[in-house]
């Protein structure tokens, strides 16, 4: 199966302004979706998207058709940028630990209970990084299992295990929501 982005990318490589805008329109929502859910921060997600596109502009003239799917490569790039930010967060957290953890639902988070999206976002943020990545790639980004495993650099079996554990943890975290 051909890469649906390849033709557009080749036009981007020639500096075609219409192709540049078309590629941004096609991929920006996916990048925001990925980075937003991995990082849980809108501004950081936008920064990651902008940085990822800088890599795209650099890579486009060197892109070798057939070597890899562009969307997979882009997810890998964006995920690496997210990793960098998560690592920096951990370093800051170790150096200056917060007064209280801001993870998961609890009795003091009653206001969030009314907002399913926020509850899910908090529960997702509380997952171990790799479980969260697996869920974001498969559920939100709708990558196939082979593609998601390739992006994460794990086997399909390992991906499946991460997905199962992540979803079970989410179900437990959201257990007070009656439909779960």
């Amino acid at each position: 199966m051909g890469d649906p982005d390849e033709e557009l990318l080749s036009r981007v490589a020639t500096g075609d302004p219409a192709a540049v805008r078309a590629l941004v329109a096609r991929k920006l929502p996916r990048l925001l979706s990925l980075a937003g859910r991995i990082l849980g921060d809108r501004q950081e997600a936008q920064d990651v998207a902008q940085e990822a596109f800088l890599r795209v502009w650099k890579q486009a003239p060197k892109w070798r058709p057939g070597a890899a799917r562009f969307d997979t490569w882009l997810h890998r790039v964006a995920l690496n940028l997210c990793y960098d930010r998560l690592r920096r967060r951990r370093e800051v957290a170790y150096a200056d630990p917060p007064e209280r953890a801001d993870e998961g639902p609890g009795p003091d988070r009653g206001l969030m209970a009314a907002d399913t999206g926020r509850r899910v976002g908090a529960a997702l943020a509380a997952l171990p990084d790799r479980q969260r990545e697996a869920i974001v790639l498969c559920h939100y980004q709708e990558l196939g299992n082979i593609e998601a495993a390739a992006v994460m650099g794990v086997s399909v079996e390992a991906l499946e295990s991460l997905l199962g554990r992540g979803r079970r943890a989410l179900r437990a975290a959201l257990a007070d929501m009656k439909e779960l």
Binding site: A13, L28, P29, T116, G121, M177
Partner: peptide
């Protein structure tokens, strides 16, 4: 439940900033 957690919206001007970064090598 997962679907209720939507993606962040792009800030105004983000797309233009990204497009402005694109080189015109040719």
């Amino acid at each position: 439940a997962l679907d209720a957690y939507g993606p962040p919206r792009a800030a105004a001007g983000l797309m233009d900033r990204i497009v402005a970064d694109a080189p015109t090598p040719r």
